[in-house]
Write a protein that binds this DNA or RNA. Structure first.
Length: 499
RNA sequence: GUCCCCAUCGUCCAGAGGCCUAGGACGUGGCCCUUUCAAGGCCAAAACACGGGUUCGAAUCCCGUUGGGGACGCCA
């Protein structure tokens, strides 16, 4: 089995395309097949090097590795259509010589006008065939005279083109609805339907799995395969990915490209796992399944036929799952850029700085959807001001109610003589002393402590947060992490502020 | 307009004639847990588009209607 993913480098990789790439990858990995990456840069106007590079980078990030294609090479290369021009040329001259294709001299403006008229008259807009009857010798003469010409395929009339779609079953088209398609544009570049057939055919692709929007291209391509004397591969068309309003997912729906999801702090394994759940299911009541396991279970015949709506909330849920499972060292490194942007990291991380970040993972990894929310969740670590906390009327009121002041005073006192609270036990010990001294317990004890130590009424668990504060306060100057004010200093400042 | 595809909770999937009083997940609501916000646990509300067939029996098969989507380019 040889499958391929053939994006055109005209923008960022869209999640809909990623889903298609994933299905191809799953198929290849599950059946010991070959996954080919081919860059379809036939449109010189719109293709860019940047997009080309971005697509490769996105696929690397996702971990969808290819067996043949750019960077890795392969026997069927080259793997960019811009490098295969001579192949297309020789194939098109075969077609021209066999009378299966002809030169077309129609001006684009004229064709455009004709199409509008057809549409306005409720007729299928298809090429009139005006140039189909020009004598080949005459055409050659006009060509050599310098007249610009495209090459069109002579579509056989009055027959059906039938194929067995791997996901949908038999699909049938009548050739009357298919006009004579452009094979080569007047600028010499191949048109998509031609390039794709030549490439898939010559690369020995056995299964073409692509989006539903290509269904109507399939009979056109099958006709070209026949003209070229090549055996068509099997085709499978997967349904579209839609936005919440049930139209094709696009930028106006928010984030749609891989780089945007990476930027927001989704893990690649989460994005892929979520995408696999669109139009497919790994099995009885299971949704969170590792990729390798999915590959074992994946089958095109199990893929659904109807379009699905992309739901970022569910993606977030999948992401939370993988955030809990991820290695802390990896997460620490992944969230560093976000912390840096927030100003919580101000230089290269030393070993102790990196270790500190790693120790912070349990503080946020069960309570955050994405990595870009980490700085917000950790802000109490790096931002503390008793004075500005007390500007908040709610905080002020809480501090002045009941025995809060006594608790805070006792806390400041207990902390003054205590060493840094490097773990949960140490913090509990101090809390116990405050409890003995004030007779407060439960919320009446812990809420004032939380306020005095964090400046806020809510936030991460104190058992985790307080030791994190004091470990941060112990960090040396060159750690790369912004200085953290210790618990002792925080309690003192708060006690003084409310005197 | 023409051609093609599709149709189960708000959303994603399960269901391949009796196992369906339609199952799971996200989200939503409630309860529990809890020193806060989360997380976690439990419970609940929530769907077979409609109309005809076929059959002893249909969410499942057939036809039609309606609705949605896609394609119709010298874009891919």
């Amino acid at each position: 089995m040889r499958v391929r993913f053939a994006p055109s480098p005209t923008g960022h990789l869209h999640v809909g395309n990623v889903r298609t790439a994933l299905f191809n990858w799953l198929l290849a990995r599950g059946q010991n097949g070959t996954f080919i990456l081919r860059i379809e840069d036939t449109d010189v106007e719109r293709s860019t090097q940047d997009s080309d590079a971005a697509i490769l980078e996105d696929l690397h990030w996702l971990g969808l590795d290819w067996d043949e294609g750019p960077e890795v090479g392969g026997a069927a290369g080259p793997y960019r259509s811009s490098e295969r021009l001579s192949t297309y040329q020789s194939r098109v001259s075969d077609l021209l010589e066999g009378g299966l294709a002809y030169y077309c001299f129609c001006a684009p403006e004229q064709l455009e006008a004709e199409r509008k008229v057809a549409l306005a008259n409720n007729l299928p807009p298809k090429y009139s065939g005006r140039c189909a009857r020009i004598d080949p010798a005459e055409a050659k003469r006009r060509m050599t005279a310098g007249e610009p010409a495209a090459v069109r395929f002579r579509t056989p009339q009055n027959r059906d083109v039938v194929f067995q779609d791997l996901v949908r079953g038999e699909i049938r088209f009548h050739t009357d609805v298919i006009g004579d398609q452009i094979l080569v544009r007047s600028d010499g570049h191949p048109a998509y339907n031609f390039a794709v057939v030549v490439d898939d055919g010559l690369m020995g692709v056995t299964h073409v799995v692509r989006g539903e929007d290509h269904i109507s291209n399939t009979p056109r391509q099958i006709l070209i395969y026949e003209g070229l004397g090549l055996t068509p591969p099997a085709f499978g068309h997967v349904a579209m990915v839609l936005g919440p309003d049930h139209t094709k997912l696009s930028k106006r729906h928010g984030a749609v490209s891989v780089d945007e999801f990476r930027e927001k702090g989704y893990l690649p394994e989460a994005l892929l796992n979520y995408l696999a759940l669109l139009s497919w299911s790994p099995g009885k009541d299971q949704e969170l399944v590792p990729l390798v396991e999915m590959a074992k279970r994946f089958s095109l015949s199990d893929v659904g036929h109807s379009a699905s709506v992309f739901d970022e909330e569910k993606l977030a849920w999948v992401n939370r799952h993988y955030l809990k499972e991820a290695d802390p060292k990896r997460l620490a490194m992944l969230c560093a850029p976000y912390l840096e942007r927030a100003g919580y990291i101000n230089g290269p991380l030393s070993a102790s700085g990196a270790a500190y970040l790693g120790s912070l993972v349990p503080v946020f990894n069960t309570s955050v959807d994405r990595l870009d929310q980490v700085p917000q969740r950790l802000r109490q670590l790096f931002e503390f001001s008793a004075a500005s906390a007390l500007d908040d009327p709610g905080i002020r009121a809480e501090v002045e109610a009941g025995a809060a002041r006594q608790v805070i005073d006792a806390l400041a006192e207990a902390l003054a003589s205590a060493p840094r609270l490097s773990d949960k036990q140490a913090f509990r010990g101090v809390a116990d002393r405050v409890k003995q001294k004030t007779g407060q317990k439960g919320r009446a004890l812990f809420h004032p402590i939380r306020i005095a130590l964090t400046g806020a009424g809510d936030g991460p668990e104190l058992d985790l947060l307080v030791p994190a504060i004091d470990r941060g306060a112990d960090l040396d100057a060159g750690s790369g992490v912004v200085p953290v004010i210790g618990a002792r200093e925080r309690a003192r400042a708060f006690a003084d502020e409310i005197k």
